[in-house]
């Protein structure tokens, strides 16, 4: 069979595994739960809640789901086993990244659909700006996830590091309490973290403004530099 058949089969199998993984369901349910619980108290013009829940969804996929999956594959010797077959282990990593990104898009799509249809929340005025911010924010967070996967000795360790990183990042990003209720200096520091820059850029898009180039630069820098570090430190076994 050809490499295309193998990649197709790999994608099918990895999709099944992702669906069977209980963690996947949680990355849908937790942001949705927050949206629905707080959604009852927002006004029609609210520009805070949706950006927060989208940032939470991306944070969960990037810091919990993806690093745990990748580190587990290495821990179980699956990447090494693949390297003895005609398929290269990097194919598996690529398929995983694409699927995790698809999961992130689906999760956000669900949030937008529920918020738009059931809660009457406001949608971003400029879809292109939203797509740009979403892509950069997801890329920067996935880079952090890849670095965790590269450094963690086991799937369990990756999960632990993900948890440890998530809470301070979520706090600085204004996801635990809204940024408007936080000290200005903390908000300012938060804007230099990938999740904070992401949340703030989303909020800018929602209020109808253009995203701040500085924040886009922060996300792009994390995406590139941290990915390079992850590639540098990644071990196949």
């Amino acid at each position: 069979m050809t490499a295309a058949t193998a990649t197709a089969k790999l994608t099918t199998v990895e999709t099944k595994l992702l669906v069977r993984e209980p963690g996947s369901l949680f990355t849908f349910l937790i942001p949705l739960f927050i949206l629905v619980v707080f959604g009852s108290s927002i006004g029609p013009g609210d520009t805070t809640l949706l950006p927060m829940t989208i940032a939470i969804a991306i944070g969960l996929v990037a810091l919990y789901l993806m690093p745990t999956a990748l580190a587990t594959y290495r821990e179980k010797g699956i990447l090494r086993r693949l390297s003895t077959t005609p398929v290269r282990p990097v194919s598996l990593l690529t398929v995983q990244l694409v699927l995790q990104f698809a999961l992130a898009v689906l999760s956000c799509g669900l949030l937008l659909a529920v918020a738009g249809a059931a809660l009457g929340a406001r949608m971003p005025a400029n879809p292109l700006s939203f797509a740009l911010v979403f892509t950069l924010g997801t890329a920067s967070m996935f880079a952090i996830g890849l670095l965790i996967a590269a450094l963690a000795p086991s799937g369990r360790a990756a999960n632990g590091i993900g948890v440890l990183l998530y809470f301070p990042m979520a706090f600085l990003a204004g996801l635990i309490q809204p940024a408007s209720q936080m000290p200005a200096i903390v908000v300012r520091i938060g804007e230099f973290t990938p999740l904070g820059a992401f949340r703030q850029s989303l909020a800018d898009v929602w209020t109808g403004g253009a995203p701040d180039p500085l924040l886009l630069g922060v996300m792009a820098a994390y995406a590139i530099l941290v990915s390079l570090a992850a590639a540098r430190f990644f071990r196949w076994e």
Binding site: R20, E21, I78, R81, T84
Partner: peptide, 12 residues
Amino acid sequence: VQLQHTQLPDNL
């Protein structure tokens, strides 16, 4: 090749 200590994903 059968490698020592190789496993597969739990849900496969």
